[in-house]
């Protein structure tokens, strides 16, 4: 099984484990989940050798110092570039920092933030439930897999932003449109990863299950679904980022109130610094939500590795 781990954590050099069914992913090669590394499988395969030469250890400044220094340098460069370009049109770090406290006390900021983030959270939950059902069915039943493969992989590959104009035709310029679009863009990666996960069951598990005459529901919910949970989590991590892009796209295009729309409004009225606070909040939301999911996996499924 050559599960690509995307920008993974050095698990790219795994060998196919013996006895595990080699599976072509359901979405015809779409299993390489973009930014989210799939968790390492619970096997004893050795991890990649630590990188780099070891002969330069001496006299090395500590990593935190380097990191802080680079951060300050980047901020200084940004500040200088912004001042050079004309500060009215460009957000700059000092002004953004100054804007943070006043933006955080405005009520509309939190209303907008909740509108967008809430839509993403609800959408991802809807997408996760629906995606899990279809993914499990696609992973376990061949006919279902064959039937839906072309649609799922076609829609999974299509940038959802391109579907937003169609959705505004069908559903109008409302916040329901945002929820539907968000749920759809969350649904697709979750279907793909859950299908992979419920399909890539180690053969020994199934053999044991058959030996003990396990019923179908035991195999489905006892083995397949459990095997799919780490994949589901990886799918949700991917879904959150995609869903947020879709939510902001609907807000831009349909003028639905939310943080994306307020960013657009503020940049139009030369409040670049205030608007950038919104970008920071949305970025923190994506990072935080993904970290929370990783944490949950480590806590509840520690055998799936880091």
């Amino acid at each position: 099984m050559t599960k690509r781990t995307g920008t993974g954590t050095g698990t790219g050099t795994r060998e196919p484990a013996a006895g595990r069914p080699v599976s072509v992913p359901a979405g015809s090669g779409s299993s390489a989940t973009e930014a989210v590394p799939l968790p390492a499988e619970p096997s004893g395969t050795p991890q990649a050798v630590p990188p780099g030469p070891t002969r330069r250890e001496r006299g090395k400044p500590p990593a935190w110092l380097l990191r802080t220094g680079t951060g300050l340098l980047l901020l200084a460069l940004w500040e200088a570039a912004a001042r050079l370009l004309g500060s009215e049109f460009v957000a700059r770090p000092t002004a953004v920092a100054a804007a943070i406290p006043e933006v955080l006390v405005t009520e509309t900021f939190w209303q907008d933030a909740w509108a967008t983030v809430g839509a993403v959270v609800y959408g991802v939950l809807i997408g996760a439930v629906a995606g899990m059902v279809l993914g499990l069915a696609m992973g376990r039943i061949k006919v279902v897999r064959w039937f839906f493969t072309s649609y799922v992989s076609g829609l999974y590959t299509l940038p959802m932003v391109a579907v937003v104009p169609l959705m505004t035709i069908w559903l109008g310029y409302t916040s329901e449109t945002r929820l539907v679009a968000v749920a759809l863009s969350a649904f697709l990666p979750i279907v793909v990863t859950t299908a992979d996960g419920s399909r890539a069951i180690p053969k020994e598990y199934l053999d044991v299950a058959h030996t003990f005459r396990a019923r179908l529901h035991h195999i489905w919910f006892g083995i397949a679904l459990r095997n799919a949970i780490p994949y589901l989590i990886a799918g949700m991590q991917l879904a959150i980022a995609r869903a947020l892009v879709t939510a902001v796209a609907v807000e831009f295009l349909a003028g639905v109130p939310g943080l994306g729309y307020s960013i657009l409004q503020q940049t139009r009225s030369f409040q670049q610094n205030e608007a950038f606070v919104g970008v920071i909040l949305l970025t923190l939301f994506v990072v935080g939500a993904r970290a929370l999911l990783t944490l949950a996996r480590r806590r509840f499924l520690p055998w799936y590795g880091r």
């Binding site: 930014a35 400044p61 951060g71 902001v248 670049q272």
Partner: peptide, 29 residues
């Protein structure tokens, strides 16, 4: 390794920013 230690965090941080939210800034600037 020194460069890795210095920039890695920022590469991932920049990657995490949803590009679509930067579009209004690019449009204005």
């Amino acid at each position: 390794p020194l460069v890795t230690a210095a920039v890695e965090t920022y590469v991932y941080a920049l990657y995490a920013i949803p590009v679509i939210t930067l579009v209004p800034f690019i449009l204005a600037g």
